[in-house]
Design a protein around this nucleic acid. Structure first.
Lengths: 188, 188
DNA sequence: TAGAAAAATTGACTTAGGTCAAAAAATTAG
DNA sequence: CTAATTTTTTGACCTAAGTCAATTTTTCTA
């Protein structure tokens, strides 16, 4: 969820200082090696993962093909939505594409904190709403833009990062064949 | 949001009886004629609209073409998400495809009720989560299914209703040309 | 640093689905 | 009930993007 953590920070800073302290106590920083998985298909997504540094992706496998559904950069929040909200096994993978520094927030610990500080539920809502609006936009993009328009948009939004991601992963994120993406790039 | 109101009902019934009463007082039943708009582009979506009877759709206009983003049947909740959550003007239309009976819940009235009964925020969250998961699924369908698979899925999920919707609207919902949908239907 | 493996490019060909135009069928209105 | 309008179907043709195969380039590894 792009740039979400900034919005979260804003809300958190509006909360009582003691709630902020309690929340901060739950946050755990972690280092992940390139290629490693933050989440595997079939397991429950027990943490909300804020990307501090590096690049990650979320994908799922369908008909033996990987479909990259999200790319995560600095300040994005990586989470398998259904699995996290309902604490059920999911079908998504989350993978580090580079060395990664992330901050974890455990579902149950956060849940518990919400029972003593109900105003934290607002955070859940903001996260869900933000992701939902992003999804709506992405769906419209898939329906109205052709392959090269989608690529150019991605480039425009993340000019710096895109260099560092393998072509097959960008292609899978854009929903095109690698060969097609390669041709798109060669025509400017 | 498909079949959402049932889930809402479950949660509402878990609330204190006096909160239930207050909530019910906010609900307004309304009749809408076929073809009329429940929401127009540029205006703020001030109500959550539960479909009691009939069929409706949400769409937006892009490059002079209508893109139908959602079809609503009995018990679905019709709302322009971003516009409703943030009470800002939106780019979506919501239109009655048949005579319609709907129940309205006003954003501000509900908001106010939440200040006295914070546990109602849970409802917002459930609505957002439900819609989000539906969107994720729809995006995957667009990326992995071809036109006729999408049509067959829609038929399977709503065998009864689909008869009553014009082909151009179904086509626009499925993201195919009318001619293509017509051909799909003729090949079984 | 050479050789192997992985990633990216390029070419030739195929295909799902779009577009345009016309005819047929269904719906609506006078 | 008939004429007019709208919707749906059908045909011919086009195009964006996929597939398969072969190179070339880059990256890893021993």
């Amino acid at each position: 969820m792009t740039l979400l953590s900034q919005k979260i920070v804003d809300i958190v800073q509006g909360l009582d200082i003691d709630i902020q302290r309690s929340l901060e106590k739950l946050l755990v920083k972690k280092q992940v090696k390139k290629g490693e998985y933050l989440l595997r298909e079939g397991s429950i997504c027990r943490h909300c993962m804020i990307i501090e540094e590096g690049i990650a992706r979320k994908f799922l496998i369908m008909n033996n093909k990987e479909i990259t559904t999200e790319l995560y950069f600095k300040d994005d929040v990586a989470v398998s939505f259904d699995s996290f909200c309902n604490q059920i096994p999911g079908n998504e993978w989350i993978q580090a594409l580079t060395e990664l520094t992330i901050t974890l927030l455990n579902f149950h610990e956060f849940q518990e904190l919400k029972t003593t500080h109900p105003e934290l539920i607002k955070l859940d809502l903001v996260i869900a709403e933000h992701y939902t609006i992003w999804l709506e936009k992405r769906l419209i993009d898939f329906r109205t833009l052709d392959a090269s328009e989608r690529y150019l948009n991605l480039l425009k939004q993340n000019p710096h990062y895109i260099q560092h991601i393998q072509l097959n992963i960008i292609a899978s994120y854009l929903g095109v064949a690698v060969e097609t993406l390669s041709r798109i790039r060669s025509n400017i």
